[in-house]
Structure formats: C-alpha cells, structure tokens
Amino acid sequence: MSDAITFNGVSKSFGPREVLKDISFAVPTGGAYVLLGRSGSGKSVTLKLICGLLKADAGAILVNGDDITGRDSNALAPIRKHIGFLFQSAALFDSLSVGENVAFPLRRHTNKPDGEIRDQATAILEKVGLAKEFQTMPGALSGGMRKRAGLARALAMEPAILLIDEPSAGLDPITSNEIDQLLIDLHTNQHATLVVVTHNIPSARRLATRLGFLDDGHLIAEGTPEELAHSEHDIVREFMKSQQAG
C-alpha cells in the first residue's frame, strides 16, 4: 500500500520563529493519522503544508506521490480537489448560506445542474445533521453546528484525504463524540485517509491507526496509541494519560 502523504525533512519558519524542524513522516493511504502536541507546536502548520496553503522552507511534501512544494494556486488545484480540509474555526463563507457553502465546491468543480447540486448538498448536510439549516447564514449557527457544516463542505467532493484541525475544540463531549463518529464512519466506509490534529486524547485513541507527537518543531514520537503511551519521552506519556486536554 502506497503512502497518501509523505513529509521528507520539512522545515518551516515564520520570521525568526522556527515552527517545524526537519520533519519526516508518512501517512499510508486509508490510514488515520493523529497529530498530537502542545499548543503552538506546529500541528496546524503541518496540516496547511499538506494542503499547500503554506510553503515549506525546505524538504519535500508528497501527496499521492506528487511533490507539491513550490506549486502555485493553479497548479495545486488538481491535488486539492481530492483533499478535504476542516478548519479549526470551520471557515465558512460568511456571504453564503450553509447550503451554498456546501454546494460551493460542487458548483465550481462539477457541471451538474443546479437541482442536483442542491440535492447532493442537502444529502451531505443530512449526514452531519444539518438538513434543516440549508438556508441559514453561517453567522446564525452555534460553534458545533459550524464545525459540522464545515465538515459537510469538506466532504462535498468526496475527498480521498481529509485534513481535520481540532474537530472537538470548544465543543461539548456529546457533539464531539458525534463528530468523531462521523469521521470513523467516513474512514471505515469510504476508506478516506484522515489526518487529524487534536488535543483530545480519547478522541485520538478512537480515531487513530497511528499517532505522531510534535514538540518544539520536532516529531519526537510516532506509533500506535499503545506505543506512545509507553514512550521514552515523559511529555508524551504525560500527554497520553490525560483524559481531556485543551
């Protein structure tokens, strides 16, 4: 089985601050990779690098075998069509209704008639439990609903790779569990490759086939949840023990 995502000695700085230092890891196709780490350890940056939203300063990033480093927006588009990205803040388009947010990628990348697109968007919204909110504007939604709407939009193109930034941050445990369940379903039923950034260890344990731990720009530990629970690093063991972090 080939790797969906490969990081090869990737570094990234913002001004004088070095966020990632020579990171290398791989996510196999159909795998579920969870990135752990303290706040500001570079987890979200890693996700954005995968999607090409940020450019790596050094190293190579391969998505489905294609090197994406140095590509501009237009060159990235074919790859991005197969990637779904759920942002931490959901990043719904304020000017469009929830339904239109979900329909947006469909309208742009398919030639389907309007009715069909609406049906499809409604179906996806139904999956995340927001079928009734098609006409609602994003500003009127609660945090959890936004997250689910964002997930619906990320799923709209049935991506092969899903990048999820903090799926449960700021949500109550029940909603958080629902979202986790959605992701597990996607993973098992559609064989999507998942890359999830989270602080929520129970959630991570449920989702992950593999975990990585970022600290101070270094990937200091990688393995199954069990392996990480017995890591040589105190901070990793400490982290894995906590029931609820962040």
């Binding site: 588009a77 991005r80 990205f85 942002f87 990043a91 304020d94």
Partner: peptide
C-alpha cells in the same frame, strides 16, 4: 477567519 485558506483548500484560486 481562514476563509481565504478555505477557498484555496477547495481548489479555488483565491486571488483570481
């Protein structure tokens, strides 16, 4: 609010 990133992630050239 990362909407521009979101656009890019949806394979849309946000500048264009």
């Amino acid at each position: 609010t990362e909407q521009i990133d979101a656009l890019e992630s949806l394979a849309v050239n946000s500048f264009h």
